[in-house]
């Protein structure tokens, strides 16, 4: 097993296993500055993330996907309802959750290597172990030649990979990814998707991936949650039924086209409602 793999949880995935994270009646309202009016951004949402599943979220821009992620990460308390992680209510950021944000969050004052090691250093992990994990993650993310570079010398996609590596080395049990491949072209996206799947299999972490790409959602996920326009609700949760050792070659499978078709059908009406087109048009 690799250094990124976690302590084994060998129990077979069974229906009785408690969910990794769960949301019950979660809503989020934002206050407009000044006035007493509020913006209903999200919910009510009921969602159980199964232990070790790969869950994708798609939805029109501004529907509350990042807000949902913030609630799960404990960065943003829900206005109503409850959120819990591993059975405990989420208050503040729980231990065991890793987040890759939508924006570039690489630290420009640190080298790639130091960025990746950032969280480990502060978690009080020994130097040898830090080096092992950083080495592995840097290689995994294809950044080996850039260990000593600063983020300003990297492309946007590479910087996002630095952020992914920085999160992965902490070996989170729940990984939340907000559009991590937004800055990448379609081909690289597919390859990064493969890497993400490999990682997911190795670590047995639960993954929640927010994406604008229907292909990405359909190819990577066990389940795809389709959200409505704001206030975001899950209008459908689609089981893909892929085998666990899938990879990007699945895009050639006729069932794949069927799957993206189904997702798009759900999304089309919502997207038209707000006349907001995403990078996921009909194909």
């Amino acid at each position: 097993m690799t250094v990124l793999a976690m302590a084994s949880r060998d129990a077979p995935k069974a229906a009785v296993e408690p969910p990794a994270a769960s949301l019950r009646g979660v809503t989020r309202h934002y206050r407009f500055p000044g006035g007493g009016k509020t913006l209903h951004a999200l919910g009510p949402i009921d969602l159980d993330l199964r232990q070790g599943e790969f869950f994708s979220v798609v939805g029109p821009s501004g529907c509350g996907k990042s807000t949902l992620l913030d609630v799960l990460a404990g960065l943003n308390p829900p206005s109503e309802g409850t959120a819990s992680f591993e059975g405990k209510p989420i208050a503040g950021v729980p231990d065991g959750i890793g987040v890759v944000f939508q924006e570039d969050a690489s630290f420009p004052w640190l080298t790639v290597e130091a960025n990746v090691a950032f969280g480990l250093k502060r978690a009080g992990i020994g130097q040898a172990e830090i080096e092992r994990r950083v080495d592995y993650a840097v290689g995994f993310m294809g950044l080996r030649d850039f260990r000593q570079s600063y983020p300003a010398q990297l492309s946007g996609g590479m910087r996002q990979r630095v952020c992914i590596a920085r999160t992965l080395v902490l070996q989170p049990r729940l990984i939340l990814l907000d559009e991590p491949f937004g800055a990448l072209d379609q081909q690289t996206r597919l390859i990064m998707g493969d890497e993400l799947l490999r990682l997911w299999r190795e670590t047995r972490a639960t993954v929640l991936l927010i994406t604008h790409s229907l292909d990405e959602a359909a190819m990577l996920a066990d389940r795809v949650g389709v959200m409505s326009a704001r206030p975001g609700l899950f209008i459908d949760v689609i089981e893909t039924g892929w085998s666990k050792d899938r990879d990007s070659r699945i895009v050639a499978d006729p069932r794949f086209g069927e799957m993206t078709g189904r997702i798009w059908e759900k999304l089309r009406a919502e997207t038209m409602k707000h006349m907001q087109t995403q990078g996921a048009g009909p194909r």
Partner: peptide, 29 residues
């Protein structure tokens, strides 16, 4: 400061002091 730097510090569960020392100060050097 980019808010996402502070959010990163929070997600890494840094104390306020650690966040200032290892994120805020280097960012504004």
């Amino acid at each position: 400061l980019k808010p996402v730097y502070l959010r990163t510090a929070k997600v890494m569960r840094l104390s306020a002091f650690e966040a200032v020392r290892s994120v805020v100060l280097p960012a504004i050097i």
